[in-house]
Simulated assay, not measured.
Amino acid sequence: MAKESGRKLIAQNRKARHDFHIEDTFEAGLVLTGTEVKSLRAGQASLVDGFVELANGEAWLLQVHIPEYTQGTWTNHEARRRRKLLLNRHEIDKIDQRVQTKGLTVIPLSLYFKDGRAKVEIALARGKKQHDKRHAIAERQAKAEARNELGRRLKGRE
């Protein structure tokens, strides 16, 4: 079998960028079982409720849903089990220090295969307040309206 190359996106947490201010991102490997990898290759996963916990110098991915593999037998995995993240020691220490001092949280942004290996992009994030979310939506709509108006004027419709 030929070795895979490139990046194949499996799942993305679109809601994260709406609910949080992203301050820094990291790429981490995942410790997975065989049926989890097969389920991911089928393109099934959900990062919506996921978060990262740091305990005893290790990083753990929690509440990420990878459904059971349909052709799996008794060797199948739990859908929402704890999964260990593979990060360098200095990355774990940096994340832990910023979580402790600045009150940030660590959330998964996307899950993908990179050169045949499962990776997760995690982010240090600060939660947005409700008024911040409304402001971001209004700003996005204003930019879209300005872009549409400029397009109409360039086409000579007005």
Score class of each variant (00 low, 15 high):
residue 22 I to L: 10
residue 24 D to G: 08
residue 24 D to R: 15
residue 25 T to Y: 12
residue 25 T to M: 10
residue 27 E to P: 00
residue 27 E to Y: 02
residue 28 A to I: 07
residue 28 A to P: 06
residue 30 L to P: 14
residue 31 V to R: 12
residue 31 V to C: 02
residue 35 T to M: 10
residue 38 K to V: 01
residue 40 L to C: 08
residue 42 A to S: 14
residue 44 Q to M: 13
residue 45 A to L: 01
residue 49 D to Q: 15
residue 50 G to S: 13
residue 50 G to L: 05
residue 51 F to A: 08
residue 52 V to L: 02
residue 56 N to L: 13
residue 56 N to K: 15
residue 56 N to Y: 04
residue 56 N to F: 04
residue 59 A to G: 11
residue 59 A to Q: 09
residue 59 A to S: 10
residue 61 L to Y: 04
residue 62 L to I: 05
residue 66 I to R: 05
residue 66 I to L: 08
residue 68 E to F: 05
residue 69 Y to W: 11
residue 70 T to W: 05
residue 70 T to E: 10
residue 71 Q to G: 07
residue 73 T to Q: 11
residue 73 T to Y: 05
residue 76 N to V: 15
residue 77 H to R: 06
residue 78 E to W: 04
residue 79 A to V: 06
residue 81 R to C: 12
residue 81 R to G: 14
residue 81 R to S: 12
residue 83 R to L: 00
residue 85 L to D: 01
residue 86 L to Y: 11
residue 86 L to H: 11
residue 86 L to T: 11
residue 87 L to K: 09
residue 88 N to D: 11
residue 88 N to P: 02
residue 89 R to N: 12
residue 90 H to Y: 04
residue 92 I to S: 02
residue 93 D to R: 10
residue 94 K to F: 11
residue 94 K to S: 14
residue 94 K to A: 13
residue 95 I to H: 03
residue 95 I to C: 10
residue 96 D to Q: 04
residue 96 D to E: 08
residue 97 Q to W: 00
residue 98 R to E: 01
residue 98 R to M: 09
residue 99 V to W: 02
residue 99 V to T: 00
residue 100 Q to S: 09
residue 100 Q to D: 06
residue 103 G to V: 05
residue 104 L to G: 03
residue 105 T to G: 11
residue 105 T to Q: 13
residue 106 V to M: 03
residue 111 L to G: 03
residue 113 F to A: 08
residue 114 K to Y: 13
residue 114 K to H: 14
residue 116 G to Q: 09
residue 117 R to G: 01
residue 117 R to T: 07
residue 117 R to M: 14
residue 117 R to F: 12
residue 118 A to W: 04
residue 118 A to E: 01
residue 119 K to A: 02
residue 119 K to I: 07
residue 121 E to S: 06
residue 124 L to W: 03
residue 125 A to R: 00
residue 127 G to E: 12
residue 128 K to A: 03
residue 129 K to F: 08
residue 129 K to V: 03
residue 131 H to E: 14
residue 133 K to S: 01
residue 133 K to V: 06
residue 133 K to Y: 03
residue 138 A to V: 04
residue 140 R to T: 04
residue 140 R to V: 05
residue 140 R to I: 01
residue 141 Q to Y: 05
residue 143 K to D: 08
residue 143 K to S: 09
residue 144 A to C: 07
residue 144 A to R: 14
residue 144 A to Y: 06
residue 145 E to M: 15
residue 145 E to F: 13
residue 147 R to H: 12
residue 148 N to D: 15
residue 149 E to D: 08
residue 149 E to S: 13
residue 151 G to C: 01
residue 151 G to V: 00
residue 152 R to I: 02
residue 152 R to T: 02
residue 153 R to G: 04
residue 156 G to I: 13
residue 156 G to M: 14
residue 156 G to N: 06
